[in-house]
């Protein structure tokens, strides 16, 4: 496995996570108290938007929050949660 991707697995293990299912390279489910769908983004490697969308849809369909694992080119990992946003009508604005 790519050494940078491996860093994510190591980092998660160190945080007490267990990888429960590998879906494909850079996409897996891990759990600690809750299950999360992890998607790895390596610094400098652009992923098509539709691929991110596919991951968000998968997360929705299996009711699992999506976490993006950002890996710097020397292996430092930062996590962001991501979700499709559906805004309600703004109730604060009247008569506009």
């Amino acid at each position: 496995m790519d050494v940078l991707e491996e860093q994510v697995a190591r980092d998660l293990k160190a945080r007490g996570f267990k990888i429960v299912e590998k879906i494909e390279d850079g996409l897996f489910i891990a759990e600690k108290n809750e299950r999360y769908l992890f998607y790895v983004l390596i610094e400098g490697v652009e992923k098509p938007l539709r691929q991110l969308y596919r991951v968000l849809n998968l997360g929705e369909s299996i009711s699992t929050p999506v976490i993006l694992a950002l890996v710097s080119n020397d292996g430092v990992v930062t996590y962001y949660s991501a979700h499709k946003l559906k805004l309600p009508r703004n109730i604060h604005v009247e008569n506009i």
């Binding site: 996570f17 991110l52 962001y80 979700h83 499709k84």
Partner: peptide, 23 residues
């Protein structure tokens, strides 16, 4: 924070919300 883009060819506006995650 929110990313906004327009999906092609439907021209549908897509919003994605992000939040720093403390795991």
């Amino acid at each position: 924070f929110t990313f906004a883009t327009v999906l092609k060819p439907s021209n549908e506006v897509a919003l994605i919300g992000f939040r720093w995650a403390k795991l």
